[in-house]
Design a protein around this nucleic acid. Sequence first.
RNA 1: GGCGCGGUAGCCAAGUGGUAAGGCACGGGUCUGCAAAACCCGCAUUCACCGGUUCGAAUCCGGUCCGCGCCUCCA
Length: 471
Amino acid sequence: MGIRFFNTLTRTIAEFEPLVPAAARIYTCGPTVYDYAHIGNFRAYVFEDLLRRYLQFRGYRVTQVMNLTDVDDKTIRSARQEGMSLNEFTARYKRAFFEDLETLNIERVEFYPAATEHVGDMIALIETLIRKGHAYVSGEGSVYFDISSFPNYGRLSRVDTSGLKAGARVVHDEYGKQDVADFALWKAWDEADGDVSWESPWGRGRPGWHIECSAMSMKYLGETFDIHTGGIDNIFPHHENEIAQSEAATGKPFVRYWLHCAHLIVEGQKMSKSLGNFYTLRDLLRRGYSGREVRFVLIGTHYRQSLNFTLASLDAARNALARIDDTRRRLQELAYRRIGPGADQTSKRLVSRAEERFVHGLDDDLNVAPALAALFDLLRDVNRALDRNAITSDGASLLESFLTKLDRVWGFLEVESQEQPDQEVRALVQERERQRGQKNWAEADKIRDRLLKMGWIVQDTPDGPHLRRAK
RNA sequence: GGCGCGGUAGCCAAGUGGUAAGGCACGGGUCUGCAAAACCCGCAUUCACCGGUUCGAAUCCGGUCCGCGCCUCCA
């Protein structure tokens, strides 16, 4: 059996069978670049990164697209408030977004199309929809999708649109709609848009939100592709609308597997600015946490489970990661000696057992918990074997390269590069060794305390003192 | 109201019919001059509650309570 995913379309778990063998084409709803992304957003992006990396690990050639929404109500409003051009404004947050991806060790996907660079594609798609009788132009020059022309509408979200009523949240300028559930493909220019507009067959205006994903996914992945991901909140209406637009235009199935990520809550409550529990990645870095620690927390809960994010969980992550690092350093030191003579049976056995459990867990709809358990069991077994000298240096190399291999998926196993102690610290360590040699324990302990205050933990080992950065 | 998710140890979190993974924290021990790290032992007779089905249920069925999400542009 291969990889299985829970498909929102069918609400069941099914074997992943791509259109083209050993290839996976994925579309991922990306950020609206009007502000720094928050950790809730990154929960989704880390999930999508895990998906991508695991498919690659299992031998799939992945082609992934993540759109950048750089024109919508929020980007336009914020840019105007700041007195900047739209492009100038969104460029700032695009840059910040990519910096954050790097901090979280999220792999770059193949394409990051920006909405503003694909308006032509969107216009062409809208023209097709009008021609095929799925869209209509309103009096003021907006274009709407006609829900009634698409009988399958509501299949993904299982929402019955007949009950939808015009409510407070229906924007007043959309009076041209024939049905409240119809949605905008093209929005005629209005006052609030300022200088943001494009020429179209229906006059000056800008694209609706949903259409960019249909146009850009088609352009980069084809009319039918394998996987579409996003947050659970996107199921309705965004993804429902994407399906309607795309399938109405092409007459072909749009997406085979829909994967949706649950939300993140903070300290048991919905994250919101008014509750004061709203974090961007940068907020956490400012508090002294690392991207690696945040990644560990975000990846550790199954993607369809809501994740309760707490600062305590970041502290727990720090300790767990320190354990990984210590074990890896032990292995690296042993491997470095290169004394042969081939890998021992224990190492070989541990590697194959851990890999089997890893794959078994993640194959099952990316069930990370059993895969993580396999990792920590491996670490314990490795330490135990190291303690009784049951691992050869070649065995240590084998284990090390296995961990490197796993890290192509986890992305948090890499030992953080150690800051090198400066001259003063090294001198103190030497002095302490001299005192210890003379059994001047009190003096040695004083130096150890002093080093700790300077941010260094000294560990005495049979091979001499080891320095570790205190956090 | 409609659609959906969840309640497992101090915290996080697997397990969906065969007798409770893993992580963090905590307690005891081995090692160590003392520490640290590592390792060993311990840490839920019990899985929100009440009934039922079954030889057997955290897992299935019915009910109750509690928490959370989406319902027109929020991952």
